[in-house]
Design a protein around this nucleic acid. Structure first.
Length: 569
RNA sequence: CGGGGCGUGGCGCAGCCUGGCUAGCGCACCUGCUUUGGGAGCAGGGGGUCGGAGGUUCAAAUCCUCUCGCCCCGACCA
């Protein structure tokens, strides 16, 4: 394609509102333009890249027996009422009414729609398992869209759903999905990790995220420096620390004055003790009322883990106001002894003896707390956050490392959540009606492309992996009005397309410098520079975007050379 | 939702505090000539209800009120 005919509005300067590199570069390279907060137009170059990602996804989905469908983006409220999510999904669900005042929403996800299709059309265990997928535009009215296409409100997502008669079958599909996902992200040239993710109340290792490592990522993942354990930090398990064998004589409860000492740091300094002798009491607001979480003084409560232990629908840190209203105390003097809330303790708490905590009395703490004797707790479990350097829960010698990443994919076993509420039933070989078991699997298409830029760029611009590049090669004629250059450039252009190489010919009348800058910004892997001087010597210059290496090749041999390079990239 | 910031031509900004001529600058765009191996030079040119509404004033981009939009910082998700 000829550059002058394409809409590639490149910019020298980054838009003022762009934060992360991928956003800046996508705008500068003329791939995307913003319409409204979190809503973008995709321009020709951007679309070429997204199509590449989609194509890779399609191939791998089809490979594992997925069937592509295309579901409605506008969905009736009744369907959501059936699953119970119409009331449950908050403001993120974009709702509207049609002319007859019927309620609809713009689909943020498609469990309801797919379950409806399958329950109507699939009746027998003989038809199971089945995996359906689509690549769709979705809308989630996020509180705070940001980072361009990486976290928009409107976004393209591949979502797949599988339906099964048995758990074994579910797990089979789950693991072939996991493999397909790994192949997809590998083919996209990404450095990623498959990590265990929070699966909510369902439990078990039935949820994994695919996370592209990038400092700009919004997710934190913990992984072992020795074995292959990796987990989203909100789920990352902890190893029970060895119990203190030398149990000192249990002391009696004792009130000590700790005027104005509220934080763990202040209290430990004041009492000259180490933080791991303290019990920290953190109050959370949940749909089941206020609860207290207990962790050691040197630990933090992980809200996701606590939520799962409590078994509630939602959980947020209680505001200081709310705490004051219910307990009559400022934060800092709260403690588990005699508190009138449901108490959930981290598994590190029971082995502690002679510990210290707030006395539920202003300016006062309690010492000599014995877990068994003094505390009444609802449940004990793993509710603390992992820190870098903590021992790996899966292997002997490993330690946790923590890195940021971008979640590009998520696979999840849904179980019978939707099939039960929406009556997606099949007849088993005994003629008995049973709910299907479901799995769901998502990939953020635009986010994957953005993540690729986060990982592959330099000061000049994008450096596309060959598999995602909008064009594999660009021809840069030094002076396109020079007859020899003109005809050589066109000849190369023609041969490359015949070879199946997507090639851009920069036919603009601009100087070479301009063409170089744009070619680098756009990140096209191979640059072919055709100049009158080299051409006079029968040479063409071929330069690689990634390394900057360039080589002079004899004019009639450049096509063969390029196809060799392509096979190596 | 809470806290903060910004809205001036397509993009990036100045001007605002301390109201006062046809509202500026860089980039981009159009025309012509020259130029052509790293974002060219000269000459000419087009494009702006200063986000919107109301108010104060002889006079408002500038001051006041309201409003809309966008962005950033804290609890969710692909």
């Amino acid at each position: 394609m000829y550059y002058s005919k394409l809409l590639i509005p490149t910019l020298k300067e980054s838009p003022a509102d762009a934060e992360v590199v991928s956003h800046k570069l996508m705008v500068r390279a003329g791939m995307i333009r913003q319409m409204a907060a979190g809503i973008y137009s995709i321009l020709p170059l951007g679309l070429r890249v997204l199509r590449k990602v989609e194509q890779i996804i399609r191939e791998e989905m089809n490979q594992i027996g997925g069937q592509e469908v295309f579901l409605p983006s506008v969905q009736p409220a009744e369907l959501w009422a059936e699953s119970g999510r119409w009331d449950f999904y908050g403001k993120e669900l974009l709702r509207f009414k049609d002319r007859n005042d019927r309620e609809f929403c713009y689909g943020p996800t498609h469990e309801e729609v797919i379950t409806d299709i399958v329950r109507r059309e699939v009746k027998s265990y003989r038809q199971l398992p089945i995996t359906l997928y689509q690549i769709q535009t979705k809308f989630r009215d996020e509180v705070r869209p940001r980072f361009g296409i990486m976290r928009g409100r409107e976004f393209t997502m591949k979502d797949a759903y599988s339906f099964h008669a048995t758990e074994e079958s579910t797990h089979e599909t789950y693991s072939s999905m996991a493999n397909a996902y790994s192949r997809i992200f590998k083919r996209c040239g990404l450095d990623f990790k498959m990590v265990e993710a929070d699966s909510g109340t369902i439990g078990g290792n039935f949820s994994h995220e695919f996370v592209v490592l990038a400092s700009s990522g919004e997710d934190c993942i913990g992984f072992c420096n020795s074995c292959d354990y990796a987990s989203n930090l909100e789920k990352a398990e902890t190893k029970t620390s060895p119990i203190n064998t030398e149990s000192p004589l249990p002391e009696d409860l004792n009130e000590v004055a700790t005027p104005k000492k509220k934080s763990v740091e202040e209290v430990t300094q004041f009492l000259r003790v180490s933080p791991n002798t303290l019990i920290k009491t953190i109050i959370f607001e949940t749909d089941q009322g206020l609860v207290a979480g207990l962790v050691r003084g040197d630990r933090e409560v992980n809200p996701v883990k606590l939520k799962n232990l409590v078994g509630c629908e939602w959980l947020i840190p209680a505001s200081e106001n709310l705490i004051a209203k219910t307990t009559g105390l400022p934060c800092g003097y709260l403690g588990p002894v005699g508190i009138k809330l449901k108490v959930f303790a981290d598994k590190e708490i029971p082995p502690m003896s002679n510990s210290i905590a707030g006395a539920n009395k202003i300016d006062t703490h309690l010492t000599g707390i014995q877990f068994k004797r003094d505390l009444k707790v609802e449940k004990i479990g793993d509710i603390r956050s992992v820190n870098e350097g903590d021992p790996c829960p899966k292997c002997k010698s490993g330690k946790y490392k923590i890195k940021r990443g971008i979640e590009v994919g998520h696979i999840f076993i849904l179980g019978k959540k939707y099939s039960e509420s929406m009556q997606a039933l099949y007849l088993d070989d005994q003629g008995k009606e049973k709910p299907m078991i479901m799995g769901c699997y998502g990939i953020g298409v635009g986010r994957t492309a953005a993540a690729a830029i986060e990982q592959n760029h330099d000061e000049q611009g994008i450096i596309w992996p060959i598999s995602l590049a909008p064009f594999q090669a660009v021809i840069l004629p030094v002076n396109f009005s020079d007859d020899a250059v003109h005809s050589a450039a066109k000849k190369i252009y023609k041969s490359l397309w015949e070879l199946g190489v997507e090639t851009l010919l920069d036919d603009r009348p601009d100087r070479l410098g301009v063409k170089f800058k744009d070619a680098e910004l756009l990140g096209i892997p191979i640059q072919i520079i055709v100049g009158p001087k080299n051409l006079g010597d029968g040479k063409i210059e071929i330069k690689l975007r990634k390394t900057g290496e360039s080589q002079l090749i004899s004019f009639p041999e450049e096509i063969a050379y390029i196809s060799t390079i392509l096979s190596e990239l």
